[in-house]
Design a protein around this nucleic acid. Structure first.
Length: 499
RNA sequence: GUUCCCAUCGUCUAGUGGCCUAGGACACCUCCCUUUCACGGAGGAUACAGGGGUUCAAAUCCCCUUGGGAACGCCA
């Protein structure tokens, strides 16, 4: 008895998968599906499998596969089985993990269905199909195309094919008229009337299988226990249920996650801004922030925590906390989440993260470690994403110093000229090449006395002469990051502007 | 058009029949900190789509309406 229970326990190992088709970049919606699968697997001590759905030969590319793998790696959603993240060679006992290499499996399954009379060869041409669809539509009824080949024998069909005719294999739905009930883990009971679909294609005329078919064969053969995927697949589930039934296979559990929406509540699309994971990477988002934000789109921490590391999400993830309604992708909040993660990092880590962006922008900055740490300390509160560092550090590179339009107003004040002149004089009079905070404070006092200005009138022109903008970090901590030569050069430029 | 899914502040959500005159977060507004801005802190405004039931009691359960979305391919 106990033995049976143990066997039962092992039989029910949690195995989930993310199954993208390599026809482009990894979309944030896909990333979230992958994340939920990953979290569910990790939470339950299960396996997370990556399967590549590349049966659409027209659109699938090796390039895209590499991009997806890279994005998933960036997010840290490491898979236990699937293409090796480095070599792309299969790893795991249930391969191949690319559908294009599993053709014989689908063929075998199709042959069984054909032999059992649950599928048939259909020779309808595109034109015939189109005409049939038109007719059905004209009748006003929802119906579906009925194929005249439904009752043909396999032997006859094979003869025609041998003679060079093209045929698809269709699944026979006519005798299956009943309601199919799906117990969705997220949505509860979903009832599909079987007549919502007609005889659908299993194998294309070129022999390539179609999504709904491979999906079932693979999920079964790869022993997938839970299928967690986007809501757009919900109607597909009926076809899949029929195939499971036809094959006599046990169905896995299903859970359909809501869609990610644009602010106009349509399915998130490229037209509204970045949706590709790698774009977020290039814009300077942190993978941990991405995961954190994506998790919050539909799932919530039991204690309502918002900012958390991956491990905390893993420890608290459960499907019953997944919301069934669609969620609007809010870039503003994503930025905020990113800022929280970023600012929590040690300064040294932050500098390491921003360096490639600074370098990429062609900035020439001090290599002194102290300088770097100090600068991060100053700029950190101004950074939300890594690319913000570029704007922040640019004024620190002499060759890039420029006076921004937002400075115009302050420079036009009648008092600004005197302040700038006094500033230049006092800096020139300063003995060393660098400044301490105390040095600056002393100089600032001198400028104040000389120009007779204080408050905004005093600080705005000086700040503009330092970073090209009237607003930003505190001067007394900013100045020690600069040297005399460079400060004077800038003062000149600012002065030139007021003359 | 048909089928299915969904419905709490502008947005993400908490809420599983009484603890809800509905809580948190982002955004917004005010104030404090600060000779600027940001960060940080304290407050504020803002929501149960509508209508019927069920119940002593409904944001929570049921039905209808409305609204939104998705799917209806030899795409996935």
């Amino acid at each position: 008895m106990t033995g049976c229970l143990i066997v039962g326990y092992f039989m029910s190992e949690i195995r989930v998968r993310f199954a993208p088709s390599p026809t482009g970049y990894l979309h944030v919606g896909g990333a979230r599906s992958a994340l939920f699968n990953y979290l569910y697997a990790k939470r339950n001590g299960g396996k997370f499998i990556l399967r590549i759905e590349d049966t659409d030969q027209e659109r699938s590319t090796e390039e895209s596969l590499k991009m997806m793998v890279a994005d998933l790696k960036w997010l840290g959603l490491n898979w236990d089985e699937g293409p090796n993240p480095e070599t792309l060679k299969d790893m795991g006992p249930y391969g191949p993990y690319k559908q294009s290499e599993r053709l014989k499996n689908y063929k075998a399954a199709a042959e069984k269905l054909l032999a059992d009379g649950k599928a048939y060869y259909c020779f309808m041409t595109d034109e015939e199909l189109e005409a049939a669809r038109e007719k059905v539509k004209a009748d006003g009824h929802q119906g579906h195309v009925e194929s005249p080949w439904e009752n043909g024998t396999v032997a006859d069909a094979l003869k025609k094919i041998a003679a060079g005719e093209k045929a698809v294999v269709r699944f026979k739905t006519r005798q299956l008229r009943k309601d199919y009930i799906l117990k969705d883990l997220i949505r509860g009971e979903v009832k599909f009337p079987s007549d919502m679909i007609g005889d659908f294609v299993l194998l294309r005329s070129d022999g390539m299988p179609v999504y709904n078919f491979c999906c079932v064969v693979d999920d079964y053969e790869m022993k997938i226990s839970h299928v967690l995927r986007a809501e757009e697949h919900l109607p597909n589930t009926l076809r899949q249920l029929m195939i499971y039934e036809g094959m006599g296979w046990k169905t896995p559990e299903f859970g359909h996650i809501s869609l990610i929406l644009d602010d106009d509540r349509q399915k998130l699309s490229k037209r509204k801004g970045a949706v590709a994971c790698d774009q977020f990477m290039k814009d300077g988002y942190l993978p941990e922030a991405m995961n954190n934000y994506l998790a919050l789109l539909g799932w919530s921490h039991p204690e309502q925590k918002e900012i958390m590391p991956m491990q905390e999400m893993v420890d608290n993830f459960s499907l019953d906390r997944v919301h069934a309604a669609g969620a609007v992708f809010d870039r503003v909040k994503l930025k905020w989440v990113n800022a929280q993660h970023l600012r929590a990092l040690p300064n040294a880590d932050i500098y390491k993260l921003i360096s490639p962006f600074l370098k990429n922008a062609g900035l020439n900055l001090p290599t002194d470690l102290n300088w770097q740490m100090q600068s991060v300390e100053i700029f950190k509160p101004y950074m939300e994403i890594l690319t913000d560092a570029v704007t922040l550090y640019t004024p620190l590179d002499d060759s890039k110093y420029e006076i921004f339009a937002e400075s115009d107003e302050a420079l036009a004040w009648p008092s600004s000229k005197a302040v700038l002149e006094a500033w230049k004089e006092c800096v020139t009079a300063h003995a060393g090449e660098t400044f301490t905070e105390a040095d600056f404070l002393r100089i600032q006092d001198e400028v104040k006395n000389k120009s007779g200005q204080k408050g905004k009138n005093l600080f705005f022109p000086i700040r503009i002469a330092l970073i090209g903008k009237p607003h930003g970090a505190e001067l007394k901590i900013l100045v020690p990051l600069m040297n005399k030569t460079s400060i004077l050069k800038r003062a000149e430029k600012a002065l030139a502007k007021v003359k």
